Simulated scan of single mutants.
Amino acid sequence: MRLVSTQAVTEGDILAKTIHNDSGQVLLQEGISLSSRMIGRLHELGISFIYIKDDRTADIEIEEAIQRETKQNAIKTIKREFRVVSEKSTLNKAFNSPQMNKHFSKVIDEILNDLNSHQQALSILSDVITYDNYVFTHSLNVTVYTLRLALELNYNEKQLKEIGLGAILHDVGKMMIPLEILNKPGKLTDEEFSMIKAHASEGFEYLRKQHDVPLLAAHCAFQHHERLDGSGYPRGIQHNEIHEYAKVIAIADVFDAITSQRVYRHAMLPNEALELLYAGAGTQFDQSLVEAFRSVVALYPEGLSVTLSDGREGIVVKQNQSLTTHPIVRIIRENGCDLQDCYDLDLAQQLDVTIVKIESILANTV
């Protein structure tokens, strides 16, 4: 199978991986021939990338780090808890949610169980699921990235539970913001942008009043937009004033935000998103954390078409866990000619050869 942008899909392409909604219902079944109407629907649903059948890479198997049942349970819990927050805030009612910690702790345990049994680099691009609310899926994705990075940092069980809860609740303050502003396709006014920025403070104020939610989780919501150089918000604090959990969540938050399709911009690919994080390493983001994050995410997901520094063209077929920048690539074109006999090249064994370009039509969508 080959990973392609939905902008690059053509009528007649065969879907290689079933597309579900966040309740587990099948929207498009694997094996179906895509019509122009179906392709248009993919665009409407905000799906950036899909897998299509390709005989040269029919043997690619996509291992999902988080099981479908785990995702469905997590989204169900996030929806339920966050919607209560939204409804109560609309009515200007202060309230406690005594079961919130218990419910989310179960979700965190299930995610950790999946991550501990999956040693491959994370590629959430492989999760071809459509969601009905960006905040819900973003909260789940940030939690997955955060916990995977925390495992890489050798956090103990207590720390994993703490940072996991902080990650899943980091954007709860957005439930106090009208949807028409959160999902506005055009440029925000200064007033609207101020309302968006207020979600960090709003989330903190809500969480610190929840009797069963640790204050540390509230501070994760408060600080996840702070930056080392003081350029963040809401308080403009710097370096050691920012809790390490918030520094970790900030990286996961930015990475997921820019690799997700939004109404106002196309999704970036993981390698481009990491370049953006590196551009801010040492100034906005903790450099050691960015470097650790690089080792746990798949920068070039399986199925992605790439061009190598020596001109050969191929498709990524497998990750190298020890060196995520150098996956295994199936070479399909050499010296400008299609190959009858494709072969696999392990870039970790040939460090003088690197990926210099992704399929151009993919690059044009970001």
Rank of each mutant, 00 (worst) to 15 (best):
V306I: 06
L351I: 09
A65Y: 01
D341V: 13
K158V: 12
E30V: 13
Q287L: 13
N21W: 02
S48W: 03
Q340S: 15
E110D: 11
M268V: 03
T143P: 02
N92H: 11
T365A: 11
Q72M: 08
V84I: 15
Y300N: 11
K318D: 15
V329H: 00
G232N: 10
Y343H: 05
I163T: 02
Q99N: 08
I258E: 10
E226P: 09
L188C: 03
P270R: 08
I75A: 01
L299S: 07
I129G: 00
H326Y: 11
L339N: 12
I237F: 05
Y264L: 07
K106E: 06
K318L: 15
M175I: 06
T354W: 01
H211A: 14
Q350S: 11
Q349T: 05
I237R: 00
P234R: 04
V263A: 06
N21Y: 04
Y131K: 07
G314D: 09
H138Y: 02
I315N: 01
R294M: 05
T354N: 07
D171I: 10
T90N: 05
D127R: 08
E157P: 01
L345P: 02
D346C: 11
S36N: 02
I355T: 03
Q350L: 04
V353M: 03
V329Q: 01
S5G: 10
L42A: 04
L347V: 04
V142I: 12
V263E: 03
L347T: 12
S201I: 10
T6G: 13
A94G: 04
L339G: 08
S36E: 07
C220Y: 10
R312I: 12
L91D: 09
E44I: 14
G31F: 09
S322Y: 13
I32W: 08
S117K: 05
L215K: 02
D132Y: 08
Q72N: 08
L289W: 04
T259V: 13
V356D: 04
F255Q: 04
S126V: 13
Q238I: 14
T57Y: 09
Q7K: 15
A94K: 09
G203A: 10
K209V: 07
D229E: 06
L215I: 15
K184V: 02
K247V: 05
G40N: 13
S322K: 07
G164V: 12
A281E: 06
P178E: 09
E291A: 07
I66V: 14
S194K: 10
L3C: 15
L27N: 01
I47M: 03
S288K: 01
C342E: 11
V248L: 12
N92V: 14
N101R: 14
K53I: 11
Q287H: 05
L215P: 00
K184Y: 02
N73Y: 03
L15A: 14
V254R: 04
G24N: 04
E272G: 08
A221G: 04
K17F: 12
Q340F: 15
R2G: 13
F95E: 11
T307N: 05
L169T: 04
N21V: 08
G280N: 06
D132Q: 14
